[in-house]
Structures are given as C-alpha cells and as structure tokens.
Nucleic acid binder design. Structure first.
Length: 269
DNA sequence: ATTGCTTCCTGAGCGC
DNA sequence: TGCGCTCAGGAAGCAA
C-alpha cells in the first residue's frame, strides 16, 4: 500500500504528479462508492470509463481524464487521501470509494470527515473555469490582476484570497503565511491594498507555494497532525498556529469567515 | 453584486 | 474511565 496524497494546492499538485506515474494508461473497470454521497455519477448509460489519458490539477481539484469522454473530478477537501495499491488491500474504515482498474490495481479514496467528493461527468460539462479564478503560479497572476479583483471590495483581504474565484487553490494556512510574509494585516479591506502591497502579496504567494511544492507537499491540511511525522511543512510555518512572532510580539488569533486567522499585529499592517 | 452566516462530518483534546 | 463539549475547515446554499 502506497500513500499518494494530502490536500491544499501543493499537496494536490504532488498527488497529481504521483498519480500520473501510477494510473496513466490504465483502463478503468469501475468506480465503487463505499459511502453514500461520495460519488456523483452522471453517466446515463452503461458507458465504459475507458483508459486514463491525463491527470491534471486546477485549483484544488484533481481532474482524471479518460478516452471515453468522461472525466473523474476529485476534491479532497480537508481530509481526503488517494491511496494507490497494485492489488486488493484491506479497506480502511474511512475508505469512501474505490477506482478499480482492469489490471487489478486500485485507487482508494479515503476521507475521515467525508467532505471530499468524486464526480463523474462528461468532459464538456466540466465547468471549472466558470467558478475558479486563475492559477496563482501562472504568469497571469500578477499585481494588476489582484488589484482588479480587490477593487471596490470591502471584504477582508484574507477572505478575498481564500475565495477560489479570486485565486484558485489557496487554503487557510497558506493565506495566513502569505499575508504574514507580505506584512499585510488580514483584516485590511480589499480596496485598501496598494499596488506595492499587491506586488508583494503576489510574489509571496508564488514563493510560499513553490517552497511547499518543492518539499513535495506536506501534511498541513490537518494541523493536528503536523507533529505526526507525515510532512515537513510545519518547518516552514511562521505564523499559523504560532504563539509568538520572531519580532517578539504575540501572535494574534481571530476568526474570519469562520476560520482561524493568525497574524502579527506589529509586523503586519 | 457582494457579503456573511450555516451546514456538512469525524476525531482530538479538554474539563470534570 | 468516560461523558459531553468545542474546535478544525472547503465550498455550496441561502439570506440580507
């Protein structure tokens, strides 16, 4: 049994890369739903799922394309994991679905909190572009774009960066880290961000994400497990979950949009 | 159009 | 020991 992933953009990117190694070219036999509500299969006939032709990432979505014209869209949410095995294994108690291949190998979808989803839909009905903003690592993500998105927005910059229609792929922990590095307070209104600050936010976003991807993605989606020997990203965290800033000031913890925000009231203005 | 609140769910951690 | 409570959070859905 080999574990293949963990949530958040860098982790999803890592999973996608590893998935390519494992399942590209394999022929799907079936998708089995082990827990009701996990799989939404919109096939209206007995069409085969075909052979895997590509595995892609868009935001935090995993897109598995086959030559049948259908795509399998996976979202891990907080606790989803994809685990690949060459053969039948003992199914874990949190296994919610299985993608079974003709050669006997299986991709298990494990998800403790059951928020994750698998959708099977015709490729032409994949409407991700309509609900997602641009990729933070693309060249299109720049200060000009961000300023346009922040224009006339009075919501806190923290919430805006978490909004997948603004930028696709950032999660709570990353946004805290990005704003900390940028020296921008998370409570600032979107429309108060200057051009210089936008440039800084863009640069820090790319840097944080690249660092995380370079370290192969890590276990940060469930912060309780950062000490669980599953990842190394906790070594990069400078503000999330911290008590004290390197400047000596106490880290402030507040709730924004129902999620914990950590920031330094001294370093972040 | 935008904002902000609620909902889904399980396991960890805490107080008693 | 074990009960009950709180918390973690991505995104959809809804209300204002």
């Amino acid at each position: 049994m080999q574990e293949v992933k963990m949530p958040e953009l860098p982790e999803v990117e890592t999973v996608v890369r590893e998935l390519r190694e494992k399942i590209l070219g394999k022929e799907l036999e079936s998708v089995e739903e082990l827990r009701t509500g996990t799989v939404c299969d919109s096939r209206n006939d007995e069409r085969e799922l075909g052979t895997i032709e590509a595995v892609k990432r868009r935001g935090k979505y995993i897109i598995i394309e086959s030559d049948s014209g259908y795509v399998i869209l996976v979202h891990l949410r907080m606790t989803g994991k994809l685990i690949f095995s060459e053969h039948d294994d003992e199914v874990s108690s949190h296994c919610r679905a299985e993608l079974r291949f003709r050669d006997g190998s299986i991709l298990y979808f494990d998800d403790i909190r059951t928020f994750g989803t698998i959708d099977i839909l015709p490729q032409k009905e994949l409407m991700l572009e309509k609900k997602l903003g641009i990729e933070p690592l693309s060249n299109d993500f720049n200060a000009e774009y961000l300023l346009a998105k922040f224009k006339n927005r009075k919501a806190p910059v923290k919430n805006l960066l978490l909004n997948q229609k603004v930028v696709a792929g950032l999660g709570n922990i990353y946004v805290c880290e990005i704003l900390y590095r940028s020296g921008v307070s998370p409570v600032r209104r979107g429309d108060s961000i200057t051009e210089k600050e936008a440039e800084q936010i863009v640069a820090d976003t790319k840097q944080v994400l690249r660092e995380a991807i370079d370290s192969n993605g890590t276990t940060i989606s469930d912060y309780r497990r950062v000490d669980d020997k599953q990842g190394e990203f906790q070594n990069f965290l400078r503000v999330y979950g911290k008590k004290q800033c390197s400047c000596g000031a106490e880290i402030i913890r507040i709730k924004q949009g129902g999620r914990s925000t950590y920031y330094c009231g001294s370093c972040q203005r």
